[in-house]
Design a protein around this nucleic acid. Structure first.
Length: 602
RNA sequence: GGCCCCGUGGUGUAGCGGUCUAACAUGCCACCCUGUCACGGUGGAGAUCGCCGGUUCGAAUCCGGCCGGGGUCGCCA
């Protein structure tokens, strides 16, 4: 192998002492002692100290004099044990150093716009503009490495399980349901467009019809929707599909994969196992969200029966109107200020709740609930609740003196959603979630369909290929909202990291579902004809799952956003700041694509 | 589209109506220094405080609008 270097900086140890080596890398830091110059030389593997001594090699010392941070240099010299007392235990290579005999600046560097060699927060748009420098920083190198190891582990694991990786096209057809498509105009076919896949969903089902039985792919997906900390316009999924299986086959496989994966590449993180399975209804009732962070408790409790006996109009009318009154306990938060309570109220309102009733139980450090008296209670609802009712609520919420009860009244789904948000907020404020733990779980038994209140149409909770429960199929015509789907989500630490389902594999049932979703037969034929046709040629029962690789790396890397684990991510407004994309194209390009730009109105 | 947060030398922060001719740390430049490792020392350069407008005798500071970034709701089958 012809390289500019014989060794990596990071690999040098005592064993190399006496060897002559050639290194190449970046100047991490320079310490000039007038006589001696120390250069910390960095490459991907690590850092080693190079000593330039004018008495050993004068010309070489002069080269080092020119070196500055991030210069790319090549150094030859002898690996030497450091003089006693000068070893640096903080460096893996700290027992040795390289005495330079020869050095060369391969390429100088301008002073970087931000620190490469320090772990300091830098404004994100600056990092993105100079992403190649940002990626040079240790933290980002680690993230990319972790991502590589994770994807490699997944490939090896699935290969050993008999899966084969098959690539599917990036240029496919727009199916205007679901997310907005990214479109690509066709040059050859005037006025027609390809769409980038939102996921390889239909393709992987067709691969099952093709008889591959076990398929997977590390697949890029595209959705033209607004971004979030955990959402990008393009993202990567582990896409997987199997034939002749039940849902538990997939869930067990994924459970084994993630336990093995974590133990291998992130052994210091704790994984809660086995992965619990929740029903959708259960998880909504207990946590107020379909992706709860299970690293802490603080479960929602139904207080409707107690509330109904109170003289608090908001409570009684909610219950009388078929709604619910539920609450959670914020431990130790009885002393919350007006402002803090206001913020929580605001959060509840932003989730659609009419308001939030807070009940502060005395002062922290007080005795047990038995010692609670009416005048220790601070609450707008205090005068409508008897001390007994307050105690009863507190008991059910496992609260004691010094705690704060958060109670919401209203229709069941709003109550759950807002308390779910409050639970998450309190968990965060009180740092209840151990950052070193991964709490995976499955959520199952979702409703197959959800009514769009605006359009009045039924819409799939997951996607239109999800198989309904066998015993619920008869409800499709009579009570579509009651039909349960064979759909499952994988969640971890409050994030949805994946979802999948068993699929419909007969033309008849698939057509029935499409009709229920409001498609005419013509539309069904035009949009999904190829699927229905495929099902007529021996489609096996099949199902699969898709997992968000970016989110999983983010969790393992303990980062707050997936941008930290994507080499070249986009901003919240979908801009690529490194390339400045999207960008205008030439008139010639547009002409070739048969495109005439509209004048934007307003 | 709604709501919230942020924008001050290269970088990260402080300053929040006059004392700002804008502070601190680090980086950068020059000189000194032969065992440092976030080396040290001396000196220096570097900011019309995101942009526009308003209030005021006076604005980095208060108000409004805009731009950019982020968080979130909507949206994400």
């Amino acid at each position: 192998m012809v390289l500019l270097k014989s060794h990596s900086c990071g690999e040098l140890k005592k064993e190399h002492v006496g060897q002559t080596v050639t290194l190449a890398g970046w100047v991490d830091r320079r310490r000039d002692h007038g006589g001696l110059i120390f250069i910390d030389l960095r490459d991907r593997q690590g850092i080693v100290q190079v000593v330039f001594n004018p008495e050993v090699a004068k010309p070489c010392h002069e080269v080092a004099n020119q070196m500055r941070s991030e210069f790319v240099v090549r150094v030859s010299g002898e690996v030497a044990r450091r003089p006693p007392g000068t070893e640096n235990l903080k460096l893996p290579t700290g027992e040795v150093e390289v005495t330079a005999h020869d050095a060369e600046v391969l390429n100088p560097s301008r002073t970087p716009p931000f620190y490469i060699n320090e772990d300091e927060e830098v404004e994100e748009n600056l990092r993105l503009r100079y992403r190649y420098l940002d990626l040079r920083r240790a933290g980002m190198q680690e993230n990319m490495m972790l991502r590589h190891h994770m994807v490699k582990f997944i490939r090896d694991f699935l290969d050993a399980e008999g899966f084969i990786e098959i690539e599917t096209p990036i240029l496919i057809k727009s199916t205007p349901e679901g997310a907005r498509d990214y479109l690509v105009p066709s040059r050859v076919h005037a006025g027609k467009f390809y769409a980038l896949p939102q996921s390889p969903q239909q393709l992987k089902q067709l691969l099952m019809v093709a008889g591959f039985e076990k398929y997977y792919q590390i697949a890029r997906c595209f959705r033209d929707e607004d971004t979030r900390a955990d959402r990008q316009p393009e993202f990567t999924q582990l896409d997987l599909e199997m034939s002749f299986i039940e849902d538990e086959d997939i869930l067990n496989l994924m459970e084994r994969l993630f336990i093995a994966l974590t133990k291998t590449i992130k052994p210091e993180m704790k994984v809660m196992e086995p992965f619990p399975r929740f029903s959708y209804t259960d998880v909504m009732e207990r946590f107020g969200t379909d992706k709860p962070d299970l690293r802490f408790g603080l479960e929602l409790k139904d207080l409707s029966d107690i509330a109904a006996r109170s003289s608090f109009d908001i409570f009684t009318s909610a219950v009388a109107g078929g709604g619910k009154v539920k609450g959670i306990c914020a431990p130790g938060c009885a002393g919350y200020s007006r402002k803090q309570l206001d913020d929580l109220n605001q959060l509840a309102r932003s989730c659609g709740a009419g308001g939030l009733v807070t009940v502060a139980l005395g002062e922290a450090g007080g005795g047990g609930l038995d010692e609670l008296t009416q005048d220790m209670v601070r609450s707008a609802a205090a005068k409508f609740l008897t001390l007994e009712q307050i105690k009863e609520m507190a008991e059910r919420l496992e609260a004691t003196v010094g705690d704060l009860l958060l109670v919401v009244a209203g229709d069941a789904s709003t109550v759950n959603t807002s308390l779910g948000a409050l639970r998450q907020e309190i968990g965060q404020r009180l740092k209840l979630a151990d950052p070193g733990t991964l709490a995976f779980a499955y959520v199952k038994d979702f409703p197959l369909l959800r009514k769009n209140e605006e359009t009045g149409y039924w819409e799939p909770e997951h996607h239109p290929f999800t198989r309904p429960w066998d015993e619920d199929v008869s409800l499709l015509d009579t009570a579509p909202g009651k039909v349960r789907g064979k759909h499952y989500d994988m969640i971890c630490n409050g994030l949805e990291i994946g979802g999948g389902s068993l699929r419909i594999y007969t033309t008849e049932l698939q057509r029935r579902v499409f009709r229920l979703l409001g498609y005419t037969d013509d539309e069904i034929e035009e949009r999904f004809g190829h699927m229905l046709e495929a099902f007529e040629y021996g489609a096996p029962p099949h199902g699969g799952i898709a997992l968000g690789i970016d989110r999983i790396v983010m969790l393992l890397a303990r980062r707050e956003t997936i941008r930290e684990v994507i080499a070249f991510p986009k901003t919240q407004s979908a801009l690529d700041l490194t390339f400045n994309a999207p960008a205008p194209v030439t008139e010639e390009q547009l002409t070739e694509l048969h495109i005439l730009l509209r004048e934007e109105e307003e």
